[in-house]
Structure formats: structure tokens, C-alpha cells
Simulated scan of single mutants.
Amino acid sequence: MLSRGAAASGRALRGAGRAGGQPLARGLRASPRSRSAMPSWVIDRYGRNDVLRFTRDMVFPIIHFPNEVIIKVHAASLNPIDLSMRISCFAGGYGATALNMKRDPLKLKSMDTEFPLTLGRDVSGVIMECGLGVSYFKPGDEVSFKPKRLSHTEAASLPYVGLTAWSAVNQVGGLNQSNCSGKRVLILGASGGVGTFAIQLVKAWGAHVTAVCSHDASTLMKKLGADDVIDYKSGNLEEQLKILPLFDFILDNVGGSTEKWALDLLKKWSGATYVTLVTPFLINMDKLGVADGMLQTGVTVGSKTVKHLFKGVHYRWAFFTPSGPSLDEIAELVDSGKIQPVIDQVFSFSEVPKAFLKLEGGHARGKTVIDVISKK
């Protein structure tokens, strides 16, 4: 969260994180600190970069539920979803419907309560306070749990992209350490945050990786372990890929017209799988409402799944999925040296608008990170 001093209280991913959901009457285990306001970057409406507003008066968060923790944020990173949420794709802003459902499932409050909104999905920091139902963490822990070999700035670059890639490759795609060896994997849009993580993940599991990116990212792709690197700017990408052996798994970070031909690159009738991270799920909910949006999404993915199943390949959608156990496995891979953070640029807390502009410019090589603690 883009707040200096603390993040808004968040649900613990482990321990008693499923305990009932009843409000906690100020019961917590805490480290000493004062209840004060904190500096934050917020938005009061959806729009361009100028909607970002710095304030020193953001109310310090409190524990509401027994499975919540409060984190003193040392670093945070930006993701494309933060940019999409800032920009008003529809009247309510990208993902506003899902965001408000998460904040107020029973719709007991006004829709206006989404503002002021603090953007940011990734943090690294230190636990300050824990709800009484939290047993996996304690005040003073570096979360979640931070790999020992990484700084907070490096660690903040991993959770969102790491869990998104893990969801796509493992939970949806079915690949793991025991079955990935020798598999041919194609990653479209490989130089972004999810792509750079996914390359390292499947390489750690023994796959042969073909990465698609622009030429200036090819050195990075090789460094991360890609066996083949294809420059999508050097000619017709579809034709370049068709001359290669067929693939067992495709991760698509690009979407659009790519989906029309990418599935033809898979081995037929062998369990080969195409997973795309570019889905209309949040857009459908924003445009059609929760019920109709989910229905439309289900119809779309269902029809595409059946269509491609008859062609001998599996078609799937994947999303970011929070998971404490998966973060623990990722931390083990990092500490063993098999996965490293890929950071494009680090900004100070005062430079948050510049960081958003960097993200908006596209063509990032890894993550954009905010050093929250630095005073520069």
C-alpha cells in the first residue's frame, strides 16, 4: 500500500486466517507505537496521473477482524492493475465493483466509501500488530515471510507477480516440480513482472523455455534462463513461432489477437495447455454488475474451453490468487537462488507520481518499486 508508516490492515494469509470473520473489539497483540496519522498517496476520483494526491492525514489503520495484521511498510511495488484502477475504464473505475464487494460484501455502505483509495497491491515490511486469531505471524516478523537474502525493496517486487505466475503455471496449468522437466514452455510478453518470474519458475522445475519479447530485453531473458528468445518486432511473430517444435504449455501475458493463433502452437491431444492472464472478468463486473458480469464471464470461458477441447488442447484463464503456502514455496526458491527479483527502477516515496508515469509508459523490464522508508 502506498502509505508511509503502515499499510491498511490486511488479512493474514496463514495461521487462523479463516476464523469466522467477526469484528474484533480492539483485541490485538501489538508492538509499541503511537496512534497517529500517516503520510499517504491516495486518489479521490478515477483519472489520469494528476488524480494522485499526497496527504499527511490518513488515519492510522486499526484491527477490525481477528485474522488481520498491520504492517509497517518498508517498500511497495506497482503493478498494471494499479494503473488500470487509477484510470477510469468505466464510470466506476477498473475493478471498482469487485473492490467494493471486498470492502463491503453486504453493500451496507455508500459506494462513495471507496474514496479516498490507496493503490498498491505489493508490500514488504514488518508486522506491527496482529489480531487475536493470527498465530502464524507475530509483531516484528518481516513478511510474508521475507526471503532472508532479499532487501525489503527486492522483496516488495515479488508477491503479486509471483502469485499470479504461480496461479497460472501451477494451480491452473498443472505444472510442478515433478512433471515439468523437459516440457516445452512458451511465454508471451516475457519481459514484464509476471513473465520474468514465470521464466525462472519453470526453469527451476526443468522446463525448456521460449521467451517472446523485444530485442532489447533478450540479454535479460537469457540471464533468467530462457533457452530461446524471439523478438516480436523482427518479423511476423506467428510465422517465427510456427517453425519451432510444438509446445506443451503457453503462458499469454499479451492477449488480443494473439489468442487467435497461439493455441495452434500447442501439441494436440497430449494435455497441452494455454493459459491467458488477459481476461474480461473485472471489466464484465464493472460493466454488467456482479451477477451478470460473472454469468457473462462464465459463458465466455466455458464456450472457449469446449471449443478448444474439441481441437485437442486445454484453454484456461488465470488470475492473481492469494496464498500463504505458495508464498512460502516462492520464498524457498528465492533463498535457494533459483528465483531472483527483477526490478526495472526504484523510486522514493515522494516520487510516486513519477513511478506511475514509468509504469504507464510500458515496456518495463521487471518491476517498478517504491522505497517507502528512504527520505530522499
Rank of each mutant, 00 (worst) to 15 (best):
L266K: 03
T153Y: 00
G93W: 08
N49S: 15
P322W: 05
D227P: 15
F65Q: 14
V161C: 10
K148R: 14
W269T: 03
K367F: 03
V342S: 04
D286G: 01
W41V: 10
Y160Q: 01
F60E: 15
I250E: 15
K102Q: 12
G120Y: 03
S323H: 13
L186A: 01
F115K: 12
M85K: 09
S77C: 00
D122H: 01
K287P: 01
L52D: 04
K222E: 06
V161Y: 06
V334D: 04
R35L: 14
D252M: 11
F60I: 07
S303R: 11
K148N: 13
G174H: 08
V42F: 07
S36A: 14
K107C: 11
L83K: 10
D216N: 14
G20K: 08
Q22E: 14
F137W: 10
F310I: 03
R121G: 00
S110D: 10
E351A: 14
L220F: 05
Y136H: 14
D141Y: 09
I199T: 13
K242S: 11
H308C: 10
T276A: 11
D231G: 05
M294R: 12
G366A: 09
V212R: 02
Y136I: 00
P280C: 04
R14T: 04
G17T: 07
I62R: 13
K203Q: 00
D248M: 01
L246Y: 06
E114Q: 15
I243D: 01
A226R: 03
C213D: 04
T368C: 11
V275F: 07
I62F: 06
Q171H: 10
A331P: 08
M1I: 01
V306R: 15
P39W: 09
I199G: 06
V352G: 09
D228S: 10
T113K: 09
H308Y: 15
N284Q: 10
P280V: 02
I339F: 10
A198R: 11
R29N: 08
K311L: 15
R4E: 08
S270Y: 07
S336Y: 01
A37P: 12
S84E: 01
R33H: 15
K338E: 01
G293P: 03
T97K: 12
I87C: 08
A75H: 04
A155Q: 01
K367M: 00
P116C: 06
E360L: 02
A272M: 13
L99P: 11
S270V: 04
S124Q: 07
G362M: 05
G362V: 02
Y232F: 11
K304W: 09
E238V: 00
A291H: 04
I230G: 08
V169H: 03
S84R: 08
D112F: 07
